[in-house]
Simulated scan of single mutants.
Amino acid sequence: MSLLSALLAIIFYPPIWQLLILGFGGALLIAIVAVWFERKAAARVQRRIGPYWASPRLGGLLHLVADMMRYAFQQVIIPRTVDYFPFLVAPIVGMAVSILPFAVVPLTSNPSYWPLPPGLIEYSLLLALAISTLPPIFLIVAGWAANNPFTIVGGVREAFIILAYELIAILSLLASAVTVGSFNIVDIVEAQGFVKWFIILNPLAFIAALIAIAMSTSAFPFEIPESEPEVVAGPFTEYSGILYALNMGGAYMRRFAFSLIVSLVLLGGWYPIVPGEGVVTGYLLPSLVVVAKATLVTLAISFLRAVYGRYRLDQALDLAWRLVLPLSLAAILLALIEAYLGIV
């Protein structure tokens, strides 16, 4: 084996390619792009000056560089009253868990590049959904460990949001599995093929999933746990420097991980690419198509900041339980009808 072949084998080994390169590196890059896109979209829609004047020729990108440098070199202040160990560990573990869904989702139909053995790949959708519900736990732990009234209220708000969105997200994303009759993401993608994408066959599931992702990642109009007028920065009030950046970046990375699942089960996955043999056609191109679709979903959710104001907690919960939960149940019903009729 040549040196180049060995290097490619290491890079495209599924746990390395999906967890480190796409999961950590890709999600971090998408998080930076999403922040920039939010600022530019809000500036354009709401007629703000925005970051234009700092670097007009670069579209305001120097603002992002300045923010990253500030977070990287700012002093981390830890109040004496915090519960020290969970206060430090929560943002680190929360970000790490945010990218774990990348380790279990197949990004190609070529079994040589599946991240799980064939026995577990049959339950890849269930595993991805189970892992994706873990990060908010550490956000609640961070709010509790800070031992501050504002952080505790922010953590409690996050707990309410979890109860509202978790069931909706799971039901809406499982609708595709109901139609196909399998929890295997590969089977779900292959059933969609070139034209039978579930965003068309079951738009109710897509709408419910999009709202659930926005709620779960505190995107506008559901940026409720850290609402400035009532609870300052919510669970993050006592955090500073790199620890605050981990908390904030974790939400964007979690949004991207959710979007990746949506792109697989509702947006045709790696199609229109048909995976072949070899690293390029069998793994690289299909995975990049999935990531491109997930990026578009992430940016679509980020655009909501420009057009919606923040909901109150009671408004968000009322929307979830009265409208979006019935919508996700209707998506399951539609999936059952399509399965009975053999549409897929």
Rank of each mutant, 00 (worst) to 15 (best):
residue 163 L to K: 00
residue 192 Q to G: 06
residue 212 A to P: 14
residue 295 T to M: 14
residue 293 K to P: 10
residue 201 L to C: 03
residue 271 Y to H: 15
residue 267 L to H: 11
residue 294 A to H: 07
residue 197 W to Y: 03
residue 302 S to V: 09
residue 249 G to P: 12
residue 169 A to V: 04
residue 286 P to V: 11
residue 293 K to M: 03
residue 246 L to D: 09
residue 282 G to F: 05
residue 254 R to W: 12
residue 278 G to Y: 04
residue 282 G to T: 12
residue 271 Y to R: 08
residue 163 L to P: 00
residue 245 A to W: 09
residue 297 V to M: 01
residue 225 P to K: 04
residue 301 I to A: 08
residue 301 I to C: 13
residue 236 F to I: 02
residue 248 M to S: 13
residue 181 G to Q: 09
residue 253 M to W: 12
residue 239 Y to P: 06
residue 182 S to F: 12
residue 163 L to D: 03
residue 294 A to P: 12
residue 202 N to S: 02
residue 240 S to F: 13
residue 198 F to A: 03
residue 244 Y to T: 07
residue 235 P to V: 08
residue 171 L to S: 03
residue 175 A to C: 03
residue 194 F to Q: 04
residue 183 F to R: 02
residue 258 F to V: 03
residue 230 E to S: 04
residue 277 E to H: 01
residue 290 V to H: 00
residue 266 L to S: 05
residue 248 M to D: 10
residue 282 G to V: 12
residue 250 G to M: 07
residue 179 T to H: 01
residue 193 G to L: 08
residue 218 S to T: 12
residue 244 Y to C: 00
residue 271 Y to W: 13
residue 303 F to G: 05
residue 287 S to F: 08
residue 228 E to R: 13
residue 254 R to E: 14
residue 297 V to F: 03
residue 230 E to L: 09
residue 283 Y to D: 06
residue 304 L to T: 15
residue 272 P to I: 05
residue 249 G to H: 11
residue 299 L to C: 06
residue 302 S to I: 09
residue 215 M to N: 05
residue 224 I to A: 01
residue 234 G to P: 11
residue 168 I to S: 00
residue 192 Q to A: 05
residue 190 E to K: 06
residue 185 I to L: 12
residue 265 V to F: 05
residue 225 P to N: 09
residue 298 T to Q: 12
residue 163 L to F: 14
residue 194 F to N: 02
residue 287 S to I: 13
residue 189 V to N: 11
residue 291 V to Q: 04
residue 274 V to G: 00
residue 226 E to L: 00
residue 265 V to E: 10
residue 291 V to A: 13
residue 256 F to A: 04
residue 269 G to A: 05
residue 166 E to T: 14
residue 300 A to M: 15
residue 303 F to M: 08
residue 170 I to A: 06
residue 211 I to C: 02
residue 163 L to M: 14
residue 277 E to Y: 05
residue 231 V to W: 04
residue 292 A to Q: 07
residue 275 P to Q: 01
residue 196 K to R: 15
residue 280 V to R: 05
